[in-house]
Write a protein that binds this DNA or RNA. Structure first.
Length: 569
DNA sequence: GGAACTAGCGCG
DNA sequence: AAAGCGCGCTAGTTCC
């Protein structure tokens, strides 16, 4: 049983709390002795903690070894409710306030930014004081209750808040990273580590080869415009230096150049400098930014956590005595689309393992590759090429699903707002966009302006078309993640001898989430709990499907493995 | 000498 | 082949 809802915030010179009843009335309030937040939270026990910004409050709790089961992140929920088309009539939540501020990033638990410790809100940050939090919580409850879709909005706010907890915990725990293995990959691929400023051996060799073919010993390889001119001089009429473009030409310079670009990418994005900066004590600790993407997907800040290249995944290595459960959802977005649109034909094609194979089996297209490119085209708004050619076949086979994305595109083109399944709405178009559309419609502008307006309308249509699907997929993933988190927390702690001390904040006493990337997660688990953790990950996927789509027969099969590395096969 | 920009490529 | 959505990051270039 929970002890209800408790708001935390600064109060006077210190910290205070306020316990709320179901109507949002304060039933008890007080100050937190000595500002000892961690002790207060630990002693209060189970509650739904309501606070301004998880990134502000939670890291210091984790640093003290205190984990909470549930919270309400007022900043994140404010952003959802403020913009949601599911919140009807004008409510206070729509008024411009300091709750519109961006969140705090990174609060390093070991050395917090000054403003993060002071209890004051940061520059242009959300307010952290108790009174403001209580008032905002009441506004949010009113907004949710006033909605005809209060069930969905409540679900979304709960999932979003759970995600905020997870983001902080995953940073605290870190992703186990084998520095020696990473260095082995670097040396094998690039050659031995160069002195500062130099090029690794294999890159230097390739550079020499390329310059020979370019007939210019001084040729610059890292500046696209200059490289393009060098290529033109030796008869390669490329329009850009992108690898797709270059690979179309036959010239002895192409192969070493493409290889050089590949190695250069590894060196600059994930080379030795990256290791030095981002991996310490055997952990990669990125800053996750919940809802950092307009669709509700997470973003990350620093270290490129969401872009770990496949070739480095074998450096993700579990602690001794521990292992990973690595799982991703097969074709999450089209499955979510089937659920949103109530498209039983698409749901039937999705039943079992491979949705694209199901589309082929239905006779809609001939090959799996065609099914994939057609489905991506439908969700992204492809109009040309093979993808654009195949989309009409999907329209015939899955009219309900296709109507949903086509309608979303039309709404967007006309300047309207679309929403995800649980009620996250896309931003309204900019005033500049709207003005350009009005002028084009009134045929007052030049032909160039009208062309531009038409193109921008199409851009926005493709955005809103994709928004509903990508955003709902993000909601499904949050529900999955939240369920995994709470069920892992209920597993028994392992004996001290089997714990992972480097998974900070006491998270190393039992299986914990270690990584999340849109439709994939990694659980770091003691060997003895690996099977239980795998079962939880699977069952949580089914649970997330039911939470969003009730009894609608769409399943969410996982590619799941228990392994010591995160390498993809 | 730094801010704002582009090109290119990694991830889903 | 690139196309059609959403990102972050680095290096180079341009502009103040």
């Amino acid at each position: 049983m929970t002890a209800g809802a408790v708001v935390l915030g600064t109060s006077g010179d210190g910290l205070g709390y306020a316990r709320l009843d179901a109507d949002g009335a304060i039933v008890e309030h007080g100050t937190i002795v000595d500002g000892d937040l961690a002790r207060f939270v630990a002693e209060t026990g189970a509650a739904r903690w309501i606070w301004s910004d998880t990134a502000h409050w939670y890291p210091r709790l984790l640093a003290a070894g205190v984990r909470v089961a549930r919270c309400r992140d007022l900043r994140l929920c404010h952003a959802i409710l403020r913009d949601s088309a599911f919140v009807g009539a004008p409510t206070e939540i729509r008024a411009a306030t300091s709750w519109d501020a961006a969140g705090e990033q990174e609060v390093d638990a070991a050395a917090p930014a000054l403003f993060a410790l002071s209890g004051e809100s940061g520059p242009r940050g959300v307010p952290h004081d108790l009174d403001a939090a209580v008032a905002e919580e009441v506004r949010q409850r009113t907004a949710v209750r006033s909605s005809a879709e209060h069930g969905r909005l409540e679900l979304l706010c709960a999932a979003e808040s759970a995600g905020a907890l997870i983001a902080a915990e995953m940073r605290a725990a870190g992703l186990p990273w084998d520095v020696a293995e990473h260095e082995r990959i670097l040396e094998e691929t690039l050659g031995s580590r160069p002195p500062a400023g130099g090029l690794p051996a294999r890159m230097a060799m390739l550079a020499g080869e390329i310059r020979t073919h370019l007939g210019d010993a001084q040729a610059t390889l890292d500046a696209p415009a200059k490289l393009l001119r060098s290529l033109h001089r030796v008869g390669v009429p490329a329009q850009s230096t992108s690898k797709w473009e270059l690979s179309r030409y036959e010239h002895p310079v192409i192969a070493p150049l493409l290889q050089y670009k590949r190695l250069s990418r590894l060196l600059t994005a994930n080379g030795w400098a990256w290791l030095d900066e981002w991996v310490s004590d055997g952990r990669f600790r990125p800053v996750y930014v919940p809802a950092g993407v307009v669709t509700g997907r997470w973003a990350s800040s620093g270290g490129g956590a969401l872009q770990i290249p496949r070739m480095l995944r074998q450096a993700v290595r579990a602690d001794e005595g521990w292992t990973f459960v690595v799982a991703d959802v097969a074709q999450l977005e089209p499955r979510v689309l089937a659920g949103m649109s109530n498209d039983l034909a698409l749901a039937r094609a999705a039943q079992g393992r491979d949705l694209y194979a199901g589309i082929v089996d239905s006779g809609t297209v001939a090959t799996r590759a065609e099914a994939k490119v057609a489905m991506l085209g439908a969700m992204y708004g492809a109009t040309t090429g093979e993808s654009g050619r195949l989309v009409p076949r999907l329209r015939r086979a899955y009219p309900r699903a296709m109507k949903l994305v086509d309608d979303a595109a039309r709404t967007g083109e006309q300047g309207g707002v679309v929403s995800t399944w649980l009620g996250r709405s896309c931003p309204a178009p900019s005033t500049r966009w709207a003005r350009a559309q009005r002028q084009a419609a009134g045929e007052t502008g030049t032909a160039v302006e009208r062309d531009r307006a038409r193109r921008e309308a199409g851009d926005r249509g493709r955005f809103t078309r994709n928004f509903i699907v990508q955003g709902t997929a993000a909601e499904w993933a949050l529900a999955w993640l939240g369920e995994v988190r709470s069920r892992l927390a209920a597993l028994d702690a392992v004996p001290t001898s089997e714990q992972a001390p480097r998974s900070g904040s006491g998270l190393g006493t039992r299986p914990h989430l270690a990584f999340f990337l849109h439709d994939e997660l990694i659980v770091h688990t003691p060997l003895r709990h690996a099977e239980a953790a795998a079962t939880i990950v699977r069952e949580a996927a089914a649970s997330a499907g039911r939470l969003l789509f009730g009894g609608f027969p769409i399943d969410f099969p996982l590619d799941l493995k228990v392994a010591d590395t995160a390498a993809k096969d």
